[in-house]
Design a protein around this nucleic acid. Sequence first.
DNA 1: TGTACATCAGTGAACGCGCGTTCACTGATGTAC
DNA 2: TGTACATCAGTGAACGCGCGTTCACTGATGTAC
Lengths: 198, 198
Amino acid sequence: MERTRRGYHHGDLPAAALAEVDRIVQERGVAAVSLREVARRVGVSNAAPSHHFGDKAGLLTAYATQGFELLAAHLSEASGREDLLSLGQAYVAFATERPGHFAVMFRPELLHGDDPHLLAAGAGAFGALAAAIASVRGMQPHDDVVQFAAAGAWSLVHGFATLWLAGNFAAPVTTMPEADAVRRSIEELVATILEATT
Amino acid sequence: MERTRRGYHHGDLPAAALAEVDRIVQERGVAAVSLREVARRVGVSNAAPSHHFGDKAGLLTAYATQGFELLAAHLSEASGREDLLSLGQAYVAFATERPGHFAVMFRPELLHGDDPHLLAAGAGAFGALAAAIASVRGMQPHDDVVQFAAAGAWSLVHGFATLWLAGNFAAPVTTMPEADAVRRSIEELVATILEATT
DNA sequence: TGTACATCAGTGAACGCGCGTTCACTGATGTAC
DNA sequence: TGTACATCAGTGAACGCGCGTTCACTGATGTAC
């Protein structure tokens, strides 16, 4: 890093640009991201970022791809224990630790949805979830039962993370760390469903 | 409606403006909503909408409030049966039937978050959910157990609706109507959790 | 029934702004010989 | 070791655009008397 201190060439503009996108999204929201603002912060000319990312959607697509890769790594760590609750908590923890990425990853209208890197990274993250569920059920990941269960699990933790970050919950949910809140929410939801179906 | 066919006064600009917001969001996304575009479509001058809504966030806040009111009505209809699954399906159905409202309601950065009408409408929608859960559990709605269960249920259906609309699911989930897809996802998720905890 | 007047709804022109993108260009790098 | 040259990274100025907001204004409405 920092190889050419002040040269015509930045050294690693793509990485620096993604880091600035992250800061801008966290500080002022995704609407505040512009190619010019990124260029300004990195200290290059207006047009420099386009050189690497093509256009604005390309920049955000690279950022979202990075997010899916980070998420997959995050989930893989947690899934070693084959413990579904830990996996769900890891998903929510990712969202709260990297709110910038999380806010962009699921906004297809801002991205190049057909970008192969983006698709691969997204599939990788979902794959970690499906693999853990397949293991619990003793089935293959591509089995329909596993796919539906994975969709349900994803929905649950994704919805929780979204509503938590948007500030839609109130006390008592918001009075504890999000890992505890999501655990209790799942427990009470399951208890309620069981009570309703007996 | 249509009382003054072509007068200086529109007749009911606020309602017409909200209807155009709905069209714009569905056609081109929330980023395409602007006071000027709304004015253009309604056929009034640039500044007319500001007269009623104060500013752009005010316009979107009114639109989101309308969304929460519609959602509450939608849920109240379905909750008559005290059937949690129907309630969840109603939530997802609302999202797919009114994707414009759904896309704006949970974007606090675009809204006046402290608007009393918005807060009241949001509380009303969540209240319908909590009431149904309280009924199933035989508890008061404000009981912590009910609040957590409601947060879990909300997360599950909200996450499903979000991921469904964003196109994040794949086959086999996407091969059936969303009401069936959400039912099977919940069923298989619960089955998996039960299998994991025994 | 008629009139004066306050209030409300909408006008239209203007402001200043930041944006994405394009383009011919120049400086830096690295490779072939 | 040195030189020629292709390639790559970044420049900087310019373009045209749509936006939110402000402001003094005018037309329409409705109410008090």
